[in-house]
Simulated scan of single mutants.
Amino acid sequence: MTRRLCIGLLLAVLANAGCGGEGPTAADGKARLWVTRDRGAIVLVDLEVPAGQSLLRALKSKAKVSTRYGGGFVQSIDGIEGSARRHEDWFWFVNGLAGDRSASSYRLRDGDVAWWDYRDWSRDAETLEVVAGAFPEPFLHGYAGRTRPAAVRYAPGLAVEASRVARVLGSDDVAARGSPVDADANVFEFVDEAPHLTAVLRQPGSGPSGAVRFSFSGSVVRLLDGDFSQRFESP
């Protein structure tokens, strides 16, 4: 077998990863599938799916999907079709982190939140790298099976609230704002500002493998009750 043929076969296998072969089993666990429109403003699908399968396969099991570019990228979901002319398209996140590969190549893991959103990308196609609406992800399950340590920092008077969130995140690194934070850690920061929940990469451009920084001000009860769930921006 020639080297060129070997490479061609390898690429074919990678392109179809998760689309064929054996299906997921109970041992793979469960993931969550969200399909929304307009930056999470309209929820179309909110269901549990088996982990152990590709993101694309999971989507196809719950919605009518058409694809492009060899089948790895989604063109339409349930008749809602992307349009370069209108600057509207489907984008996916896992645990709030923007995908870095085709949907057929990402294998869902137990606990993942798989999120498809249809939106106008004209202002943020290159800059929207992480969204906060999957909280407490990506603190709990990370991306592609890689998790990071979590650090919680708080403004004066917010230590109790910070400790409560730290327990949810499984973090014992809780300290006042300004305290050193490990360069590899995800950060959740309590601030005394107008109510909000936002998320950015600590190093812009680092992709879904990079550490995140969340900023929060408001009711911890609302946060933990899921009031910010499935939204790009704070409600």
Rank of each mutant, 00 (worst) to 15 (best):
V35L: 05
P195M: 09
P156C: 09
V168I: 12
D120Q: 06
A183M: 14
R39M: 15
D227K: 12
G18P: 03
R123W: 09
R109A: 09
V113N: 08
G157V: 01
E22R: 11
V49Q: 10
S179T: 14
L11K: 10
F232Q: 07
P204K: 08
V74L: 05
E189L: 14
L9E: 11
G20W: 13
Q53P: 02
C6E: 12
G8E: 11
L11M: 14
Q230I: 09
R32S: 14
R39W: 15
L108T: 06
L5R: 11
E48V: 12
G40L: 02
T127D: 07
V65H: 00
A166V: 11
S215L: 09
F91A: 10
D112V: 10
D78I: 04
S219R: 03
V131P: 04
S209W: 12
D110A: 09
G178T: 11
G145I: 05
D38R: 12
I7V: 14
P156V: 04
S179Y: 08
P156L: 11
N186C: 10
I42V: 14
R202N: 00
L9Y: 08
D124M: 14
R57C: 08
D112N: 00
G142P: 01
Q75R: 11
F91T: 04
F232Y: 13
Q53F: 04
G210W: 01
L33R: 04
A41N: 15
L197K: 12
C6W: 13
A12Y: 02
G82K: 08
K64Y: 02
F73L: 07
L10W: 12
G20H: 15
S76G: 01
F91Q: 10
G71Y: 10
V13H: 10
D173T: 06
S171K: 14
D112Y: 00
